[in-house]
């Protein structure tokens, strides 16, 4: 009896560090953040006043905030589409490789091991030094300058860099998902005369749905909270065309001394992500093989 108790409490104790750290660094921070969003704290002053919903009202009337939400939405949609499609294609191709599969997998996983800032700096140089050369060689007006210099193309360019790195992990998860499909099913399908597409549609896809849900949630979250790529590549410019919400929060807090306002922005972002994740997980449960 005593040993059983010890065993159980040991397992509980093992979770304790995580619970404490989570409470300290996450739950507490969220609570304090929400509290600050109802104040007028500028980040430096020693005191602050509670101003109710005034920050939220200001944000509602701020065209820059709306624009930033739209940019973030576009960013997330492009990122999710790009990552999901590319990583699925990559996973299917890598999974069907007969030779050098492990090697190929590690090559495609490489970008995930480089930090986002490093990747951005490399791509920034590529964009500014190589793209104009291509533009001039093939006489494509859009490529005369770095795409980051143009409000129309900057967001797409940033997303491309992000996708380049972000496909690695979902690819790996998809490969794991693919390997959970029993091979007898394919055999049976083949005997019944199912085409390649139909085998994918009716055998592979249902098995992949849980994996797709996981990858979607991760990609949506990454898209909406994205900050590092846009910040290092463009700093939100040109003309705010890549001013994702993360950059707006950062600038308002630490540059514009509107700490409370930045917290209000972060709270809204938090709510959006919570709702999206909830809907996503609900929808994902509906179909597929579990």
């Amino acid at each position: 009896m005593a040993s059983k108790f010890l065993e159980r409490s040991t397992y509980f104790l093992f979770t304790l560090p995580a619970v404490i750290l989570y409470t300290l660094f996450f739950a507490y921070a969220v609570f304090v953040g929400i509290q600050y969003s109802f104040t007028d704290w500028n980040g430096i002053s020693s005191g602050y006043n509670y101003v109710g919903f005034s920050n939220y009202v200001d944000l509602w009337n701020n065209p820059n905030f709306k624009q930033s939400l739209i940019v973030t939405g576009q960013y997330a949609i492009m990122l999710v589409a790009g990552v999901m499609i590319l990583s699925l294609i990559l996973a299917l191709s890598l999974n069907s490789l007969k030779k050098l599969q492990t090697f190929a997998k590690s090559v495609y996983f490489l970008p995930a091991m480089i930090s986002a800032v490093t990747i951005s700096l490399i791509w920034d140089q590529l964009f500014v030094r190589v793209v104009p050369l291509i533009g001039e060689a093939f006489d494509i007006a859009a490529f005369y300058q770095s795409p980051l210099a143009h409000p129309k193309y900057a967001l797409i360019a940033v997303v491309i860099v992000n996708i380049w790195q972000a496909v690695a992990l979902p690819t790996l998860i998809f490969i794991a998902g693919l390997q959970s499909v029993p091979s007898e099913l394919y055999e049976a399908g083949r005997i019944d005369g199912a085409s390649t597409f139909n085998r994918f549609r009716y055998i592979t896809f249902p098995f992949l749905i849980p994996t797709i849900t996981v990858n979607m949630v991760l990609a949506i979250k990454a898209g909406i909270t994205s900050f590092d790529y846009a910040y290092t590549l463009t700093g939100g410019g040109p003309v705010k065309s890549t001013n994702v919400i993360g950059i707006m929060i950062y600038n308002d807090a630490f540059q514009n001394l509107r700490f409370a306002m930045a917290n209000a922005e972060a709270v809204i972002l938090f709510v959006i992500i919570a709702v999206l994740s909830f809907v996503q997980i609900k929808l994902g449960r509906k179909g597929g093989v579990h």
Binding site: V128, P132, Y144, S146
Partner: peptide
């Protein structure tokens, strides 16, 4: 100015 000014 240089042609690629906006990217510099």
């Amino acid at each position: 100015a240089n042609k690629d000014a906006f990217g510099v």
